[in-house]
């Protein structure tokens, strides 16, 4: 196999809060790895041949890489803002391409049909125009001014509101969503999707959040995000082909899919093709 550009990226491989000496046996891009707390209390990640891999602790997770990361892990400045509650949502395994999992996270048009009465509902299905760009300085995909009708803005809220979203893709299998924060107008709630690629068609997904919310019990916050992600899971396991097609002829995008179009273009440009299908079959 030729060396894939994705080898040198950082990936989540476990929750810091669940790190123990017993360890977690998992995998990264087909390689079995072991994540554990070492004798000195720090996290170690090792391949089955005992070779140690780079480790980084950030955003509630242990991160590692099979290759030689050229950059530090992407920054989420909001994560360090005082007053935010950091939510470890936990892992959910999905039999799908890690890239399909990210692309679905970037999509709003499915809200009325998959997250019915929570994130969207008929007849409020229209996706208004929004802005998408590949920011060359940061080398990230951004979608801004994304607005969508949300029937249940918060657990306590009666009736719907128009929620604004910003999406950011700083790494091939990670995305950060900034979402209207009802208790703090002017601030954004941060909801992330960190995807650990186990294989080209199998991934462990680690959602994580940094929210301004002093009211809702932690368990409710976890359950809300698990609900949303598991609603997506049965979609992700039933897309054909399983790999994300980067050939433009294979699937039909509309204006509502411009984030996905930019994401696919960005993946192709960088050769981030682990979990992608390059030629229509």
């Amino acid at each position: 196999m030729t060396r894939n550009a994705m080898m040198d990226e950082w990936y989540p491989v476990g929750l810091v809060s669940q790190l123990d000496a017993h360890g977690r046996s998992t995998a990264l891009m087909g390689e079995p790895i072991e994540v554990k707390r070492g004798d000195d209390g720090t996290a170690t990640v090792a391949r089955s041949d005992g070779r140690h891999l780079p480790v980084c602790i950030r955003y509630g997770h242990v991160w590692s890489s099979l290759g030689d990361p050229q950059k530090p892990l992407f920054a989420i400045p909001e994560a360090d803002q005082p007053g935010r509650r950091l939510v470890d949502v936990g892992v959910v395994r999905v039999r799908c391409s890690p890239l399909r999992a990210v692309e679905n996270f970037l999509d709003i048009a499915h809200f009325p049909f998959v997250h019915t009465d929570i994130l969207g509902s008929e007849p409020h299905t229209e996706v208004q125009n929004y802005k998408v760009e590949i920011r060359e300085d940061e080398d990230e995909v951004w979608a801004t001014q994304v607005r969508f009708y949300q029937p249940q803005a918060a657990k306590s809220a009666e009736g719907g509101i128009t929620t604004e979203y910003m999406y950011r893709v700083p790494a091939p299998t990670c995305s950060i969503l900034y979402k209207t924060c009802p208790p703090r107008p002017g601030e954004w709630d941060v909801i992330t999707l960190f995807v650990q690629p186990l294989a080209e068609d199998l991934c462990d997904v680690w959602p994580w959040m940094a929210l301004f919310d002093d009211e809702t019990p932690m368990t409710d916050l976890i359950h809300f995000q698990q609900t949303i992600f598991v609603q997506d899971r049965s979609i992700l396991e039933n897309q054909i082909p399983g790999l994300l097609p980067l050939d433009p002829g294979m699937e039909i995008p509309t204006r509502a899919d411009l984030t996905s179009v930019a994401y696919r273009r960005w993946l192709k440009r960088h050769g981030y093709t682990y979990g992608a299908q390059l030629v229509a079959q």
Partner: peptide, 27 residues
């Protein structure tokens, strides 16, 4: 064919209203 041309979702997961079959993913 059991595949929506938009995003490849299996149409057999979809729903029927009147004489139309809709995809469960984006409708």
């Amino acid at each position: 064919a059991d595949r929506c041309p938009h995003r490849g979702m299996r149409l057999s997961h979809g729903f029927v209203r009147g004489e139309t079959l809709s995809c469960i993913y984006h409708g």
